[in-house]
Write a protein that binds this DNA or RNA. Structure first.
Lengths: 164, 164
DNA sequence: CCGTAGTCGCGACTCAGTCGCAAATAATGA
DNA sequence: TCATTATTTGCGACTGAGTCGCGACTACGG
């Protein structure tokens, strides 16, 4: 599925749902879709301004809100690795886990049939009608875990120095 | 496991790790442990003040930070149902899912061997050393899902009216 | 009971996100 | 094509969670 196709699909879907397509919304949507990594509202604004120079912060937030409500994007916290911002990504067919490395800050994605089974179990056993799921895992990625083998003390000094 | 036992265990653990036990920290810790539901920093402050009237906001935040770093509590977002606050709970042996109902606002907990298997799979296949996990699910609880059977249209008006 | 490293309270600050309102505009139908 | 109108936008002021620096205070090992 090419980015161009995705973009049209999303814009068409919005039009079809009766959403007014303004230049500002188009800019934000295109930026989200073409993004290679997870963007927060700030970077979203910055990038959208390259297309629509006068777009305002409030409009970006309002568009994010709209896309969330239409379930076209997911909101992530990414374990609050860098402050309290939120990050956004276009909703994919299959939910995935976000692995956040406290050490190097990289975000990895991981998906598994087990996750799907767990969701099905929740829906069945708790009678819960799932609309969104957010599974975030924090720790050390393969590279960082390998490198940190030596200094693994558990006292306060070490704990205080760690990011979480 | 009685609350009293838990409280002593946690305070002892802190002392053992070389953490200075001040009256303020004791107050915050006791409040977290005796809490029946998930508390945000604000309510934590309010409740801690009943024990230690002059405790400051900053101290509560610093204590939360400390307990997080020592991995004695978990931080939750609860799908940001009511603003951007964070909620806290004493870390339990077994991780559990938090089900947040967008409709009535209730939080349900759910734990399952499948979740444990999923975590094991992540650790094994991604080589990720898991320190914390946070699985939050948003949607409609059994009661709300049953009640909402009638008005299930999918257009913008409805979507905009929904909380997410 | 002293000394001191660690902690606290305070007040000012940051920063993400929200809101109300007047001006601008996308979509509709004549 | 253009007038109408309900929506959306930009702006600026605001909110509310969380952070920080600093001088005063204090837990705890000696």
């Amino acid at each position: 599925m090419s980015p161009t196709f995705e973009r049209r699909a999303l814009l068409d879907e919005l039009a079809h749902k009766g959403v007014r397509l303004t230049a500002q919304r188009r800019a934000v949507i295109e930026v989200i879709q073409e993004a290679r990594d997870h963007l927060d509202a700030g970077s979203l604004l910055e990038l959208a301004r390259k297309r629509e120079p006068n777009i305002d912060r409030a409009t970006v937030y309002r568009t994010i809100e709209l896309l969330k409500k239409l379930r076209l994007i997911d909101e992530l916290d990414l374990m609050h690795l860098q402050g309290e911002k939120h990050y956004y990504e276009v909703k994919t067919k299959r939910d995935h886990v976000h692995l956040a490395c406290f050490c190097c800050g990289r975000i990895e994605e991981f998906s598994s049939p087990l996750f799907e089974r767990l969701k099905a179990e929740i829906a069945r056993e708790a009678g819960f009608e799932i609309r969104v799921t957010r599974l975030e895992v924090g720790g050390a990625c393969r590279a960082c875990a390998a490198g940190a083998k030596s200094h693994e003390r558990e006292d306060v000094k070490t704990a205080t120095a760690l990011s979480q």
